Computed example of a mutant assay.
Amino acid sequence: MTPVIEVEGLRKVYGAGDTAVHALRGLDLTVQRGEYIAIMGASGSGKSTLLNILGCLDVPSAGTYRLDGIDTSDFAEQQLSLLRNRKIGFVFQSFNLVPRTTALANVELPLVYAGVRRAERKARALAALELVGLTDRSTHRPNELSGGQQQRVAIARALVTSPAIVLADEPTGNLDTDSSREVLGIFDRLNASGRTVVLITHEDDVAAHATRTVRVVDGRVAGVLV
């Protein structure tokens, strides 16, 4: 079976000359379909850069990245955007919800960009909210929701396109203990149902939910714990 993520010799350099920052230095990583991976590393280790490239939000300076068997090396921004919308669900630490719209409308957004018709958008968005236990909050705006509820809306938005992979950047970083437990429970259930999950975290108890932990040091994979 083709891995959902294949990274070979990935390099990322910001700037040039004496001020160049080498964020990734020939990193290799393979993630099989249905895995649950935690990526850990100190600040500046390159883990966020790696996740942004995996999410097609950034491009490498060198190396190869194949997403679900598709080589993204020569993709233009528009092609990356289409691939991102079809294959990837992204969950951010800061939720990134649109403030003045309802939970339902926030979840529908990726489908709007994909040109899905209104009736189908609503049905799929409600189904995604049901997966995270928030159908009763569908008409609430973000400022009417707790932090944990906002993150659950963000997860529903990530799932609404039925992506091959869910990427999460410190998804519990802004949450209290109870909300973190709820959100991690959702990721656990997603993975148990066959979804591929890759998350960044600096917390050992969060990484313990994953089936494999990848440690990144100075832009390279320094170790893997199973």
Rank of each mutant, 00 (worst) to 15 (best):
V4D: 02
G69C: 13
A76V: 12
G194S: 10
Q79T: 11
A208L: 13
G41W: 05
L10H: 01
I39T: 09
R157V: 01
H202Y: 08
R152V: 00
A105N: 08
E203N: 15
T30W: 08
V153D: 02
G185H: 12
R157Y: 08
I155W: 02
I165P: 00
N191A: 03
R121L: 00
A114F: 02
T139N: 14
Q93W: 07
G9D: 12
V183A: 12
L24P: 02
G34N: 11
K87N: 13
R86M: 11
K47D: 02
L159P: 07
F95D: 10
A62D: 14
L57T: 05
L184C: 13
T135Y: 04
T2L: 14
R25S: 12
R212L: 08
L109D: 09
A114W: 02
P60N: 10
A103I: 05
F75M: 15
F90T: 08
S138V: 14
T213E: 09
D74S: 15
D205F: 15
D205Y: 15
N96Y: 15
N85I: 03
I39D: 02
A42H: 12
R118F: 01
V206L: 11
S81K: 00
A16Q: 15
Q149V: 03
A123K: 06
G115K: 07
L175Y: 10
F92H: 04
R100K: 09
E108H: 04
A20R: 12
A114N: 07
V107N: 03
T135D: 14
D28P: 05
V91T: 08
Q149M: 05
Y14S: 08
V31P: 06
R189V: 09
E6S: 13
N96G: 05
S43H: 07
V214L: 11
V21K: 01
V116C: 06
G41Q: 04
D218S: 09
A23E: 03
T30M: 09
A23T: 06
G185P: 03
Q32C: 10
K12I: 06
I200S: 09
N96W: 05
L67R: 03
L24G: 04
S138M: 15
T201W: 06
K122Y: 00
T196A: 10
Q151T: 08
A20Q: 12
R157H: 10
F92L: 12
G41Y: 05
V13M: 05
L51E: 03
I53N: 02
D71G: 12
A192H: 13
Q93T: 10
N143Q: 07
V98T: 14
A16M: 09
N106H: 06
V4W: 00
R84L: 08
T30R: 13
R121K: 04
L190K: 03
D18M: 08
R117T: 11
R152F: 00
P110N: 11
L131W: 07
R137N: 08
K87G: 12
K12R: 15
N191D: 07
Y65I: 15
D74L: 14
A208D: 11
Y36G: 01
G44P: 11
L27V: 04
G63L: 00
G55E: 06
V4Y: 00
T161Y: 00
H209R: 15
T177V: 14
A154I: 10
A158W: 00
